[in-house]
Design a protein around this nucleic acid. Structure first.
Length: 109
RNA sequence: GAAGUUGCUCAGGUGAUCGCGCUUCGCAGCAUGGCGGAGUGAGGAAAGUCCGAGCUCCGAAGGGCAGGGUGGUCGCUAACGGCGACUGGGGGUGACCCUAAGGAAAGUGCCACAGAAAACAAACCGCCCGCAGCGUCCAAUCGCUUAAACGAGAGGUCGAAGCAGGUAAGUUUGAAACGGUGAGGUAAGAGCUCACCGCUUUGAUGGCGACAUCGGAGGCAUGGUAAACCCCACCCGGAGCAAGACCAAAUAGGAACACAUGUCGUGUCAGGCCGAUUUUUAAAUUGUCCUGGCGCGACGAAGGGCGGCCCGUCCAAGGUGUUCGGGUUAGGUCGCUAGAACCGGAUGGUAACAUCCGGUCCAGAGAAAUGAUCAUCACUCCGGCCUUGCCGGAGAACAGAACUCGGCUUAUGCGUAACUUUGGUC
RNA sequence: GGUCCCAUCGUCUAGUGGCCUAGGACGUUGGCCUCUCACGCCGAAAACACGGGUUCGAACCCCGUUGGGACCA
């Protein structure tokens, strides 16, 4: 699992990728060539000061760790919404898994 | 016990599992990558960007003006608008706190409403004395008369207005009224005189100094406002690591507008006036001068740079300047962290701080990494119980390095020391 | 990261020490007009971002916060 830091790749995902939304986040995804999960978490300034933004990013990174072995071959971008701050880690985990199922990404056992 | 003032410390520890950034080593490998090990990894405010510096570039960072900043004194410091000590003023019962705290007798401006008057001294309302006339009242005396009544009436008293003079805040207004309070004094009053306080000025003593204490003199002149302009003293060139340096790649020498192309010298060519020579006229040759073209040299400048202006200085025909357009491009490397650094000690100093000795190496990352769960220990709070204790539950703030330091300000949890005021009990 | 600018009724604004108990326009709202609506007329409510300081007096001057906005190779 690797963090995406290349601006061009992220733009490509925004342009060509599929997207699914829930109350808590927006998920964008695109198949890639390598057999790994690359991710980016997009937290704008409307979430407040730097500490809060960093906290959201840490929560989502921890959450993606669960899917590390199951989701390979995809580049994804996660855009949290403000409601994501209000619910617990466990609830958030379920919502994300649901989104992955909706997206018909094959979850490997 | 309560309320408060000032200073200081810490910013949870340990272990396990899963993860992250950077550096480095090893293995496999040459795909956009993988696996494993080691080291290291946020703050007291990293924040606001309010000051000050280092560093880099802008010509070499020059002079003056403008502009900006600071403003008790002495010190500390690389520097500061910071810090320390002291002085004056103000606040608080107090511990203690606050203080842009130079100049209003260089000049200008402003001081609404109210008030007689708002700045330089007067006018007005008053008070007092004097003058001449008028009126009221009293009245010596006189006329007439027996007397009374009546009439006249020197002089006095009171009153209103006038003239000339004296007078100061009387009595309001106001934030503020040419010293304040008290006593004497006077026609009425007034520093007119006296005492105390204030002020001005002068001297002595103490202090490096701000200033303090004591004394003499003047009798009061100098309203407030400078976080109004201003004056005085001191300081400041501008920009900022997106500074800047190097490398690579790409574009292709683009468009529009503005401005200069002058003067002098000299060479050459062409033309013209005049003269000389040859010569029958005409024409030819040649010389001085003038005009024009070209070349060379010197001077020169519209403009531009030195990010406000002037001086000064530099560039200035191989055109320059401004604007627009196109391309690269969210390219790479360096700058980039060993420093006015941190810790401990000694010495000097009231202190800020300085010097010396010993030790330590402590993030340098592409929009950017430190976290999650569990256990346990420590801390705080709440509840219960058999109250030196045990059990259960809850909590842990503000907040995340982006070139680096020194401060200030703001946000914020817990603890602790000294001191102050106050309540209760002994 | 750095350099700057701004803040007045719900919105756009005027105000540059006293005339400010802050003016105007649009909007809101009450009444009149009309058969009703619109237009028109008369009225009302509504703001100096916050905290200190200077001054007799502050929306205005000074300092500090808070919020918003612009720019950079």
């Amino acid at each position: 699992m690797k963090r995406l830091r290349d601006e061009k790749t992220i733009r490509k995902i925004y342009r060509d990728g599929e997207r699914r939304t829930s109350n808590e986040l927006t998920l964008l995804y695109l198949q890639n060539q390598c057999h790994r999960l690359n991710y980016a978490i997009h937290v704008g300034k409307r979430f407040g000061i730097a500490v809060r933004r960093n906290k959201i990013k840490r929560v989502f990174r921890e959450l993606l760790l669960q899917f590390k072995e199951k989701l390979v071959g995809y580049d994804i971008v996660i855009r949290p919404k403000k409601k994501a701050e209000e619910i617990s880690f466990h609830q958030l985990s379920q919502r994300v898994e649901k989104l992955f199922i909706e997206a018909e990404i094959p979850i490997q056992k």
